[in-house]
Design a protein around this nucleic acid. Structure first.
Lengths: 158, 158
DNA sequence: CTGCCTGCAAACTCTTTGCACGAAT
DNA sequence: ATTCGTGCAAAGAGTTTGCAGGCAG
C-alpha cells in the first residue's frame, strides 16, 4: 500500500530506499532527476525534465532521464500521463492517483486532473466479466476552451 | 447525426459521397484502402491495413494509407483507438461509437470494446465545470488475463 | 576492485512530408 | 487541360540501445 507523501524530502528518502531495495545504485544523476521532477508543479515532459535536471547537475544526459523515468514510475513516485500527443507527460504522485481523470484543453494543451473514484470500480467490474484482472485505467476528455473561442485567450492560461 | 450503417456497400457509398462533398477525388487507392478496412473484423494497424489494401490494389503505398486514414476518421466511417502502445489502432465504426470503452489485455494485446454510456455524460459534466466544451473522451482499462496466468494460454485468443 | 551506470551517438518505430509523375474530373 | 493524388524516399519526433569509460558499493 502507498503511504501519503507530505514533503519532498520524504519522497526523496523513499526514492533512495526504492533504489537500494532493487539493488540499484544511488547516483548523483538519479537524484538530480528526482529533485528536478519534484520541483515541477504541473505535468512535464522528458525534455523539460532533462533541462531542469541539468540545471541541478549539468552532467545529466537525455539517456539517463529516459532510463530513470521508468524507475520513478515503478516506484510510484511519478505517474505517466499519455494523452496520445506524441510525447508523454509525467507528474509527481499524490494519493489516489489511480482515481484521476484528465481533461485536456485542445486550445492550450493544458491538462486538468479531476478526481474520478468510479473509474477504478468500473475497471474492476468490466475486467472481471472478461476474466481479467485490472492493472490500471485511464479516462481522458478532450475539450475546447469556451473563453478562448470567444475572446482568443483563456482566463486560466490558454 | 450519424446514420446506422448496415452493410459495407452502404458505407462504401457514404465514403464516396464524403469524398465528393469535400471536393476530394475518388481514386482506386482510396477505395482499395476503404475496402481493406471494411474487411477487418477487429482492430487493425496502419501497417496491417496497408498489407490488406495491397492485396486488393498492389499500387497502394504506405503514404497513401496514412493520408487516407484521417479522411476515413473524419468521415466517421473509422474510429481511431490509441492505447498508448506506439502504433495506433483503427476500427470500422458502428453506432454509439463515442460511448465505447476499451479493455486491453496485457498478455495478448487484444482489445475488447465495452459500452460505456456514462462516459459521454461524464465528459460533458466535467468539461462544463471548467468552462470547456467536450470534443471526445476515452476510457481504457489495462488488465491481465487470469487464464493466461494460470495455464499459459487464454480460452479466447491470448 | 567489480560491475552497474553513464554520456554519446546511432538506431529504432511510427508517421509525415517534398517532389516529380500520373490520373481523376 | 488542370489540379489533385500518388509513390518513393527522406525527414521528423520521441524514445531506446550499444559501447567504452566512470563511479558507487
Amino acid at each position: 500500500m502507498t503511504v501519503a507523501l507530505v514533503t519532498t524530502s520524504e519522497a526523496r528518502d523513499k526514492f533512495k530506499e526504492y533504489l537500494v531495495k532493487k539493488g540499484l545504485r544511488v547516483t548523483n544523476q538519479r537524484l538530480a532527476i528526482f529533485d528536478a521532477a519534484f520541483l515541477q508543479a504541473e505535468h512535464f515532459t522528458a525534455e523539460q525534465l532533462l533541462a531542469h535536471a541539468r540545471a541541478i547537475d549539468d552532467s545529466v544526459s537525455r539517456a539517463t532521464v529516459y532510463r530513470t523515468l521508468p524507475i520513478m514510475t515503478e516506484s510510484a513516485l511519478l505517474r505517466e500521463v499519455d494523452i496520445g500527443q506524441g510525447e508523454k507527460f509525467y507528474r509527481t504522485s499524490s494519493i489516489n492517483s489511480t482515481q484521476v481523470a484528465q481533461v485536456v484543453c485542445l486550445d492550450c494543451n493544458r491538462i486538468f486532473e479531476i478526481s474520478a473514484p468510479f473509474m477504478e470500480w468500473y475497471g474492476s467490474t468490466v475486467s472481471s466479466k472478461l476474466g481479467l484482472t485490472p492493472v490500471s485505467q485511464r479516462l481522458q476528455v478532450s475539450a475546447h476552451c469556451n473563453a478562448f473561442r470567444q475572446t482568443g485567450s483563456c482566463p486560466r492560461k490558454c
